[in-house]
Design a protein around this nucleic acid. Structure first.
Length: 465
RNA sequence: UCCCCUGUAGCUCAGUCGGUAGAGCAGCUGACUGUUAAUCAGCGGGUCGCUGGUUCGAGCCCAGCCGGGGGAGCCA
């Protein structure tokens, strides 16, 4: 059987680059088949696009293999591309040859009907063959590409920060330990675990962020971005949290908070527009079946000028609001998602960038304002989700940073000598932010659960496949 | 981790007052059809999440455990 020659369905149905009457070979999986005495229809999908192509067989009795061709089977279909006689598709294939490559018996779990996302999660090895998950994975790939294109076109360098980290205080959540110790026989010294005996001669973790290393590269290359996996051992059981997820973290030298805001706004708009323009077919599917408001929501972000509002102003606005909140509002408290969503959905009705948060509720590395009470942090809030980006201008003054780290109770400051060193020699103002890739994808596709935009999600109690 | 909901056929679900189970879809067989969530007829299909308790009798009531969903917190 010849697998080398084939025409992808997207080339026929999306790009419309194949002339009628051409001979084509399709390699793909049968989505559904209808056989009757005088005519049979086989719908094949090859993953190149949302759409199936329909093969028409005029004399089914001459093709006994049709008995074995069932939903889920892989086939090689050869024939002439013709304008369809039926409704619902522009082209179809007059089948000359139909070969069964891999049969699918009746236990194939994906049926020609709607399945719940919960069920499909349990068969994550097969769900990419469904319409929804085919679309999710295609868009995921395109958006990953768009991220690189956006930054590369701006002259940012893509850097790889380590996934294995020895700093236990990068700021966020619980960490996964990594070790080569025999867990039944862990070396101890004076009652304590003796990490010197471990693989790296030190206690190590999976990283929770590439930011600190990103700063090191930004203060040499100028503008950089990271795009890679991160790991959090938080016992979070929500639709928005995964234990392993991908994050984009740009970092710019010679930049202050307003530059950071400009970049974040431009970046989000670029990604959303890219999805609408480059994934039109898949996006149309999401708009029809997953979230009817999707296009309006994304267009709203693309066309809006993001509101910029200080934390202090936002608190004042929330205090004046008639809305009753579960968590009371008061200067100094961290913003709850109900507050964030009220600001972006009710007060401004568009994306909002909040900035200058109280020093006490934000991380050690954020630049302290002249008032001494606030730091140059920013969160980008969007309707329907709330916070989608978090970032800051970094503290570039050595003494101020060191004092703040001590104040925040960071032990073993010596472990961070390298982070402080870039402030000792040739320090520059710099700023950056983090965007959760999977969360951005949720926003773009309208999918409500992070487990359904990640091909093989890792969450508490689930690391299958 | 906390609060609420939930677990019955391959899938989605119903199951009344406690009397050992039913539908639609899928599958199989046949008929029919330029069909496209095809249609029509027939057939097969169950450790009611697990363990224990109450009861003459438990899918149903009680307890514990396990799984799933939604919300909250933490965050991206």
């Amino acid at each position: 059987m010849d697998y080398k020659t084939r025409t992808k369905i997207a080339v026929i149905l999306i790009e419309d680059r194949v002339a009628v009457d051409s001979d084509v070979i399709i390699l793909g999986w049968v989505r559904t088949i209808r056989v009757s005495k005088n005519v049979a229809f086989v719908e094949v999908n090859d993953g190149s696009c949302m759409k199936n192509i329909q093969g028409v067989i005029e004399q089914p009795e001459n093709l006994p293999v049709l008995d074995k061709i069932t939903t889920g089977a892989s086939v090689r279909m050869q024939g002439r591309l013709v304008a369809s006689q039926g409704k619902g598709q522009k082209y179809e294939i007059e089948v000359k040859s139909l070969l069964l490559v891999g049969e699918a018996d009746t236990s194939y779990p994906i049926q020609t009907k709607r399945h719940s996302f919960e069920f499909l999660r349990e068969i994550a090895h097969l769900r990419p063959r469904t319409n929804t998950f085919g679309a999710v994975n295609r868009v995921r790939s395109k958006i990953a590409y768009a991220i690189h294109k956006f930054y590369q076109d701006k002259g940012f360098y893509y850097i790889h920060t380590p996934l294995i980290s020895a700093s236990d205080c990068e700021g966020a959540g619980d960490l996964f330990h990594i070790t080569t110790f025999d867990l039944d026989n862990i070396p101890r010294k004076d009652g304590q675990i003796d990490w010197h005996e471990d693989f790296f001669g030190d206690e190590t973790y999976l990283t929770v962020s590439g930011q600190l290393e990103g700063e090191l590269l930004a203060t040499a290359l100028g503008d950089i971005y990271t795009f890679g996996p991160t790991f959090r051992a938080e016992n979070s059981n929500t639709s928005r949290h995964a234990s392993e997820f991908w994050m984009i973290e740009p970092e710019m030298a010679w930049a202050e908070l307003d530059d950071n805001m400009d970049l974040a706004e431009e970046f989000l708009k670029y990604l959303f527009r890219f999805a609408l323009e480059e994934c039109a077919d898949d996006m149309e599917f999401f708009g029809r079946w997953v979230d009817k408001e999707l296009h309006r929501t994304l267009e709203g972000v693309i066309t809006a000028e993001f509101e910029r509002c200080s934390y202090t102003e936002a608190i004042t606005l929330l205090e004046k609001a008639k809305q009753k909140f579960e968590f009371p509002v008061k200067w100094g408290v961290d913003m709850q998602s109900e507050h964030e969503r009220y600001l972006t959905e009710k007060i401004f009705k568009k994306p909002v960038i909040l900035y200058d948060y109280p020093e006490e509720i934000k991380s050690f590395y954020m630049r302290v304002n002249d008032d001494g009470r606030t730091v140059r942090a920013m969160d980008v809030l969007v309707p329907k989700v709330g916070e989608i980006i978090g970032g800051s201008q970094r503290e570039e003054r050595y003494d101020v940073l060191k004092a703040r780290m001590e104040k925040k109770g960071i032990k073993n400051l010596d472990n961070y000598y390298w982070y402080l060193d870039i402030r000792r020699w040739g320090s520059v103002p710099h700023a950056g932010f983090g965007l959760g890739f999977d969360r951005a994808l949720m926003y773009i596709t309208g999918m409500a659960n992070i487990r359904d935009v990640t091909p093989f999600p890792r969450v508490p109690n689930w690391a299958k496949f």
